[in-house]
């Protein structure tokens, strides 16, 4: 039986009728037509589907849309404000932190949470933080560079 689920996605109320088994990632992709959040596996390992749920990085393939009813979700599409890239997005661009780009939205969302919790992470801490995100293209070094870049950038802006 379908139920109505109401989630604020990137600040916009999204109300859709779905089955209880509908995964949050499918709610975002199929109902909201926000296809920046990707799917790379069915065992909750790859992190391509990472979004912010109530400010926390979660794998949207491992949450039911009904579990998110009444909550706030931020996806990659909601990250750039006023047409300006988020510092993490900028870092990925500046430091060639992506190749095919498939893992990138999830990687970026994960990095956003990391920098909120730990504004000055070491390279090791960054590696630990993105353990739940697989990238098969970049070999990660440039991703770590990108997140370091973003950390510096955020610190500068705060000054």
């Amino acid at each position: 039986m379908k139920t109505v689920v109401n989630i604020r996605v990137n600040g916009v109320e999204q109300k859709h009728e779905v089955e209880p088994r509908t995964l949050l990632v499918h709610f975002l992709r199929d109902c909201c037509r926000l296809t920046g959040t990707h799917v790379g596996c069915e065992t909750s390992i790859c992190g391509a589907c990472t979004v912010l749920f109530e400010g926390k990085a979660v794998k949207s393939c491992t949450l039911l849309a009904v579990q998110a009813d009444g909550s706030e979700v931020t996806t990659i599409e909601g990250l750039a404000g006023d047409g300006r890239l988020h510092p993490v997005q900028e870092g990925f661009w500046e430091r060639h932190g992506l190749q095919c780009g498939y893992c990138t939205p999830g990687m970026i969302m994960m990095a956003v949470q990391l920098l909120e919790r730990n504004p000055k992470p070491t390279r090791e801490e960054i590696s630990h933080a993105i353990e739940g995100n697989l990238c098969r293209c970049t070999g990660y070094s440039h991703i770590i560079d990108a997140i370091e870049y973003a950390a510096r950038k955020i610190a500068e802006v705060k000054k």
Binding site: G47, V58, K59, L63, M110, E131, G132
Partner: peptide, 9 residues
């Protein structure tokens, strides 16, 4: 345990 996303949930 697992990874950061798993630990959040």
């Amino acid at each position: 345990i697992g990874d950061a996303q798993v630990r959040n949930r």
